[in-house]
C-alpha cells in the first residue's frame, strides 16, 4: 500500500516537472498565448482593483524605505543642486536654440514624431530578482503592440514583450534580456546598453570608440538608428540615464561605462507606451 502511494506520488511529480518543461518550451519567446489572454481577461479587472485598493498600504511601506534613503541622500543632493544650478544657467541658452531647431524640424515637444502615447498604470510586478518585468493595464484594445517602447516622465522604462486585450507585459531595461542602442550626448558615442542583472540602478553601455573618453555626468539617450531595411525599436533621443562611472582601458578596443537610469525602475506607477511609430 505504502509503495503504491510512493509510486503514485513520484508519477505525479514527474508529470508536473515534465509539464513545466513542456510549458516553458511551448511558450518561451512567443509572447502571450490563448490561455494567458483568457486568464488575463478574467484577472485584469481584479488586479486593477487590488492595485488601487492596496496603493495607500504600498505608499506607507515605501515611505519607510524612502525615509531611510533620504538621510544619506541629503548631503549628496546639496552638492548636486549647486552643480545643476551652474549647468542650468549654461543650459538656458542652449534651450532657446533648441526650441528654434525643434520648430524648424517640426518635432513634437514630448512624444517622438509618428508615435501615439497610451498611458497605463503598473498593476503587477515580478517577485523575483532575476526577471525585471511589470504588467500594465493597457493592451491591444488600446493600440499597444509587442516591442512598443515604454517611457515615464523621467525617461526610458522598457519595451512591451507580450500583449493581451486589456493588459501588457513590459520588460524593463534592467531585465537580463534587454538591450538598447544608446548614444552619449553630446559626444555622440554610440553603443549597446545592457543591464547588470539584480541591480536596477546600474546599466552598462558597451561601445567601441577608444578615441573619445566618456566621463561621469554625461547623459545617455536612445540612438534610434535606421537603415533601409531595419530600424531600432526605440525612437531617438529618449533619455535613458546618466554616466556614473567611466573607466578608461586603453588596451581594450571595447569600453564600458556605467549608467544610472533616469527612471526609478523599482517604483513605477504611471507609464506611457509609445504606440505606432515607423519601424522597419
Amino acid at each position: 500500500m505504502y509503495r503504491k502511494q510512493v509510486r503514485r506520488r513520484r508519477a505525479v511529480l514527474a508529470l508536473l516537472v515534465l509539464g513545466s518543461f513542456g510549458l516553458l518550451t511551448l511558450t518561451y519567446g512567443r509572447g502571450s498565448n490563448g490561455l494567458q489572454r483568457g486568464v488575463s481577461a478574467i484577472f485584469s479587472p481584479v488586479e486593477s482593483a487590488a492595485d488601487r485598493a492596496l496603493k495607500p498600504a504600498r505608499d506607507l511601506v515605501n515611505w519607510f524605505d524612502e525615509t531611510f534613503d533620504a538621510r544619506g541622500e541629503n548631503s549628496r543632493l546639496h552638492d548636486e543642486v549647486r552643480k545643476f544650478r551652474d549647468e542650468a544657467v549654461a543650459g538656458q541658452a542652449a534651450v532657446a536654440e533648441n526650441e528654434q531647431l525643434k520648430k524648424m524640424v517640426e518635432l513634437d515637444e514630448t512624444v517622438p514624431s509618428g508615435y501615439r502615447p497610451v498611458s497605463g498604470r503598473v498593476i503587477a510586478r515580478s517577485p523575483t530578482v532575476w526577471f525585471a518585468d511589470v504588467t500594465i493595464d493597457v493592451g491591444s484594445a488600446d493600440g499597444v503592440r509587442v516591442e512598443d517602447p515604454v517611457v515615464n516622465g523621467d525617461g526610458l522604462v522598457g519595451t512591451v514583450s507580450a500583449v493581451t486585450g486589456s493588459s501588457a507585459a513590459v520588460t524593463l531595461i534592467a531585465d537580463g534580456s534587454s538591450a538598447v542602442s544608446g548614444r552619449v550626448v553630446p559626444l555622440g558615442v554610440e553603443g549597446v546598453i545592457r543591464p547588470s542583472v539584480g541591480d536596477p540602478n546600474d546599466l552598462i553601455l558597451d561601445f567601441i570608440d577608444s578615441a573619445r573618453h566618456v566621463h561621469a555626468g554625461l547623459s545617455v539617450v536612445t540612438a534610434g538608428w535606421r537603415t533601409e531595411a531595419l530600424a531600432s525599436r526605440f525612437p531617438p533621443n529618449i533619455p535613458v540615464g546618466e554616466v556614473t562611472e567611466a573607466s578608461i582601458v586603453e588596451q581594450e578596443a571595447q569600453q564600458q561605462v556605467h549608467l544610472r537610469p533616469f527612471a526609478d525602475l523599482r517604483n513605477l506607477d504611471l507609464v506611457q507606451v509609445l504606440t505606432g511609430g515607423s519601424r522597419g
Binding site: 508536473l16 516537472v17 509539464g19 513545466s20 518543461f21 513542456g22 510549458l23 516553458l24 518550451t25 511551448l26 511558450t27 518561451y28 519567446g29 512567443r30 502571450s32 498565448n33 490561455l35 494567458q36 486568464v39 488575463s40 484577472f43 488586479e47 503587477a124 510586478r125 515580478s126 517577485p127 526577471f131 518585468d133 504588467t135 514583450s161 507580450a162 500583449v163 493581451t164 493588459s167 501588457a168 507585459a169
Partner: peptide
C-alpha cells in the same frame, strides 16, 4: 503567477 505577469509559462511552476 506566470499567467498574470504574461511571462513564459512553466518557469514559476517548475
Amino acid at each position: 503567477l506566470n499567467s498574470l505577469l504574461i511571462e513564459p509559462l512553466g518557469g514559476g511552476s517548475l
